[in-house]
Amino acid sequence: MKSRPNLLITCVALMAAAITPVLGDTPKSVAAPSDLERGKAIAFNRNKGNCLACHAIDGGELPGNSGPPLLQMALRFPDRAVLRAQIWDATVRNPNTVMPPYGKHKILNNDELDLVVDYLLSL
């Protein structure tokens, strides 16, 4: 009995979430805000990017300190491909790195990787 109203609220919330990007502000970066949110969610999710295990990212709690803080990414990575390559397989640039090879080892799929890159470029 109790599940009905909850379900309804969920549906409304989901619909609202789906509509919001359409009504939302013009985004700073090329990616739509909903995509940026998705990229952020993937980066923060402990079962996905879990980037916070090693990197401080604005708005992320309990960051680790094994990698540099991820900020001003667009400035530091004017070439999107270079940033993407770093996340795809960090061992190319530094064979001794501890950063997992997210693309090469299929920790993230191509779409997820692109969403994360877009999100980073918005930082």
Binding site: R46, D58, P63, N65, S66, L71, I107
Partner: peptide, 26 residues
């Protein structure tokens, strides 16, 4: 899962929002 990397995290006080911390170089 990647969560194992951090599955033992405890609440500790952190300086909210400020990304100033020691980046221990590898």
């Amino acid at each position: 899962t990647l969560s194992a990397l951090s599955n033992l995290s405890r609440p500790v006080s952190i300086i909210g929002g400020i990304i100033v911390f020691s980046y221990v170089a590898i």
